[in-house]
Deep mutational scan, measured.
Amino acid sequence: MLEGKVKWFNSEKGFGFIEVEGQDDVFVHFSAIQGEGFKTLEEGQAVSFEIVEGNRGPQAANVTKEA
């Protein structure tokens, strides 16, 4: 699992990017966010995740919000 911070997330469109120190930003789709209820992320929020190869390159999977 990697750790990063949410760079930005558009809850209307359901996607955004996660910043990872020393690496390129990683695309995140709302469907990759773990948990119940409305799936969104806040700018600057700490998250842990895995990287998988998507249709358009690397993207986040199994995203969990850090306490």
Rank of each mutant, 00 (worst) to 15 (best):
A32C: 04
V20Q: 08
F27D: 00
G16Y: 01
N10T: 07
I18N: 00
W8F: 08
A32L: 03
Q45L: 09
M1G: 09
I33P: 01
E36N: 11
V52F: 10
R56A: 12
V20R: 11
E42H: 14
S31R: 10
G22K: 08
G57S: 06
Q59D: 02
V6C: 04
I33Q: 02
M1D: 06
V52Q: 10
Q59M: 11
S11L: 12
A46P: 12
E50R: 06
G4K: 01
K5N: 05
V28W: 02
E53L: 13
V63H: 00
N55E: 14
G22H: 09
F17N: 02
K39H: 07
G57L: 05
N10V: 06
G16Q: 00
V26T: 07
H29P: 03
F49E: 00
F9R: 01
T64I: 10
I51Y: 07
N62F: 11
L41D: 01
V28Y: 03
V20A: 08
K7R: 12
I33W: 03
I18K: 00
D25T: 06
F38M: 08
F27T: 01
N10I: 07
N55H: 13
K7C: 05
G54R: 08
V26W: 03
E50Y: 13
W8K: 04
E19P: 02
N62S: 11
F15K: 02
K13E: 04
V20E: 02
I51T: 06
N55P: 15
E3Q: 15
D25L: 08
N10Y: 07
G4V: 01
V47T: 03
G22N: 12
F27H: 02
K13L: 10
E12H: 14
V52K: 15
W8E: 02
Q59K: 08
S48N: 14
F38P: 11
S48I: 11
A67Y: 14
F17T: 03
F49Y: 05
V26N: 01
S11A: 14
E12A: 13
L2C: 04
N10P: 02
I18L: 10
F30Q: 05
A67Q: 11
K39E: 04
V47L: 06
K65S: 10
P58V: 11
V47W: 01
N62D: 05
T64L: 14
F49N: 00
F38Y: 13
N10M: 07
D24I: 12
W8C: 04
I18F: 03
L41C: 03
V20G: 04
F49M: 05
I18W: 01
V52P: 02
F38W: 13
F38T: 08
E21F: 11
I33A: 02
E36M: 10
V28A: 03
E21C: 06
S11E: 09
W8Y: 08
R56C: 05
E66I: 15
A60M: 01
K39W: 06
K65F: 12
E53H: 12
F15R: 03
E36V: 09
K7D: 01
N62E: 05
K13P: 02
Q59R: 11
A61G: 08
G57F: 05
A67V: 12
G35P: 03
G44Q: 07
T40H: 12
N55W: 14
I33V: 10
E66V: 15
V6Y: 01
R56I: 09
F9I: 03
G16V: 01
Q34N: 15
V6N: 01
L41V: 05
E43Y: 14
E19M: 13
K7M: 04
D25Y: 06
L41S: 02
T64H: 13
F27G: 01
A61F: 11
K39D: 04
A46T: 13
N55V: 14
F15Q: 04
A61T: 12
V63E: 00
A67F: 12
R56D: 08
A60I: 02
I18A: 02
I51P: 03
E36G: 10
V28N: 00
L41F: 04
E36W: 06
A67N: 14
K5R: 11
R56H: 14
S11F: 13
I33T: 02
I51S: 04
